[in-house]
Design a protein around this nucleic acid. Sequence first.
DNA 1: TATGAATGAGATTTCATTCAT
DNA 2: CATGAATGAAATCTCATTCAT
Lengths: 233, 233, 233, 233
Amino acid sequence: MGIQERKNREKEERKTLILAKAKELILEHGIDALSMQEIADGTELSKATLYLYFQSKEAILKEILAESASAFVEYVESRISPESSGIEALRTLWASYMSLYGESHEVFVLTGINNFLEPGFLLDLGRTGADLDTPPGRMLAMIARVLERGIADGTLKTDLKPLKLARTVILIATAIIDTVARLPRPARDSRIILAEMRSVFELLIRGLAADGTDRSLLALPDLDAGRSRNRRP
Amino acid sequence: MGIQERKNREKEERKTLILAKAKELILEHGIDALSMQEIADGTELSKATLYLYFQSKEAILKEILAESASAFVEYVESRISPESSGIEALRTLWASYMSLYGESHEVFVLTGINNFLEPGFLLDLGRTGADLDTPPGRMLAMIARVLERGIADGTLKTDLKPLKLARTVILIATAIIDTVARLPRPARDSRIILAEMRSVFELLIRGLAADGTDRSLLALPDLDAGRSRNRRP
Amino acid sequence: MGIQERKNREKEERKTLILAKAKELILEHGIDALSMQEIADGTELSKATLYLYFQSKEAILKEILAESASAFVEYVESRISPESSGIEALRTLWASYMSLYGESHEVFVLTGINNFLEPGFLLDLGRTGADLDTPPGRMLAMIARVLERGIADGTLKTDLKPLKLARTVILIATAIIDTVARLPRPARDSRIILAEMRSVFELLIRGLAADGTDRSLLALPDLDAGRSRNRRP
Amino acid sequence: MGIQERKNREKEERKTLILAKAKELILEHGIDALSMQEIADGTELSKATLYLYFQSKEAILKEILAESASAFVEYVESRISPESSGIEALRTLWASYMSLYGESHEVFVLTGINNFLEPGFLLDLGRTGADLDTPPGRMLAMIARVLERGIADGTLKTDLKPLKLARTVILIATAIIDTVARLPRPARDSRIILAEMRSVFELLIRGLAADGTDRSLLALPDLDAGRSRNRRP
DNA sequence: TATGAATGAGATTTCATTCAT
DNA sequence: CATGAATGAAATCTCATTCAT
């Protein structure tokens, strides 16, 4: 069965190749500019071949979205320890977000594509309660759980229902990504973008924190500090 | 020169007509769906005529953006009293935003178009320091002044420079509009959108407020309550 | 208003040009092979231009169908005298059909396109009673009237309702056209086709005629006879 | 040579499988919708494999046509008794046609494919006199023999040569099938189709019958009556 | 000044056919 | 013998922009 296995692997690799190129192109030129022709050129495949691997352009986008959302959820959950308080978990969430952006820009496609595919998602879902089982839905649920924990242990304070607040939080995160994603590649400066993310997140955490919360938890770590810490033995 | 004057006036009227229709169409169908054909049909002009008044589709969008930004700045400045504290001014800012959305959805075009046209604006401007003289730049400056006032009078607390923070604030406001702007008109539910705006703004104000700030200033007025309160003398 | 008129006329001429070329191409290569590219090449217009005059390919086909059907109905009605018996009217119907084929091949597109556009038309219409107001519907109604007249005056005999029978009659006429329309142009021999039409129609008339009908009315005129008669002063 | 034989047999079985599935698909979705992909999926073979057994899609269609035509001829000949008169033989012909339609829709492919493949067949064959040895040619010849018998025994009356008339008869039969074949399966209503066939055939028989023919032979049996009658011993 | 008319370039998707393995 | 993989060519339709009148 070695042959079969290799074939499967190669097929999977092709899919991966297509998805990677599509993701790259979205990052490069923005989602609005993504065309099947571009993906074909970029992968050195014909347009027809793309349709061997994906039923439609939309299917490609959906898959990228699902993968990125899943990756994000897994990444975050692996980093939140069960004993951490709500506000600590929230900080971990943001740290993960920034880390994934710094590493692979993975988070880029997360929200931009979802807006593209299901424009009403962030406004509707909480009400209908539906579709929490899709990857974006699971991301929403995960964030809601973090917020819930914080409300329960008194580190966060809000009048809103966690699920509704989770949507708001994603909405705000979306702002940065959507803005950055529209930038032409050369204009992007990772330092500025990360700094901007940091500002936004710090604002959010302050806005969410309960009154008595430990002051030191309100400030996000300095960008360079985090890096140098990694470099130290 | 009376003839010349009339001609100029008529030319201006035509431009106004075109801009108004384009804005209307953006509100109706979203910026992605805006086409020159639609504008031509709506104004009862030919597509070629549009090019007599504007060099390109992009030029139309730029002008709408400039007008809307100016209108917003004027509106806000007319409502902020000189004696109000920084946090009060900030509250007025949000109230204006919501009010303009409720009245004419004017704010829609404010941020959506800007992102569309000059994606880097919100990230770059603060650095280069340039272009504070364009309408979007003036909007940024106005918000920066509000923040500055709050820092000065101790009602707001932040480590960031006002101008940088102003960009962040606009960025976050953008999130809602961008999300909403992609929805087809019939799918938009003003109540939900306003509620969402309120959540976001409340988060922001809490995040910005200094510690000792009057608690009552942190909560934004209830949507319905706010309305009736405004109407009372 | 001379200019306006000329423009209108030219516009109409363009539409006519497109329709004529499309009709020609259908005759040339069959309806299945008709493409917008072909029409564009044939008219020396760009594909985009075609869409200025017709909303879609289907719209072009519908218009051709409507025109041809109307032309046929008008032509026939102008040739049936009010005093003629049912069977005479029926003969006139066939004569018209053949005449139109001989002159302009107009009838070609009549049925082929309808089958293409509304495959169920000939089987469904009589039952639902709907759409008798479209050009194809009017053609159907016209034939039904002829049949009705024959039943009333005793020259035709059938157990079927006129409208239902009219569908059957068109169905049979369709057979010839559909067959011929698929032939490559050079393979077509008008004599053979006309002879074939004649056979089919004669069969039909015999099948429809009541028993006592004048024998001479059952045989359709010889093809050459008809022509030479026309040529005589 | 046992191995060779088995291989040949298996090859034949594969061909049969492919043909059967193609026929089924034509019946299901119409000939226009038939694609190599569909056949491959249906047979659980790869598209490439189809090309090992048939040179092209057209070759597949030709073979189906040949088989169906042969089957039809055999079926009819097995049902016509040597003593029956011409008009009785003609009635048997139609009965077979309807019966085959009712049982397996076999007749669908008969005429539909022929038109698709060799549009000129029904118009040309009689002239060239060639190709009477192909399966469609044999079908034509068989019908011609039936007509000839009727002319000889005085039950049918026509001025045309039997072979020419046979083409006309097939042409007319084609009309129904071609029309029906374009309908998507669910839209097909067997009752209506059979009733339509009946109308057409009755018209034809009346048109062909000689004057003195037994009246009872002119009317085709009622659809339901026919069925129960056939079942009775 | 105004515009009707035209179009090049590009979008997504389908399908019969080929070829290396 | 069998096939997975690939593709060229073609289909319909859209849109910002230009230009002769």
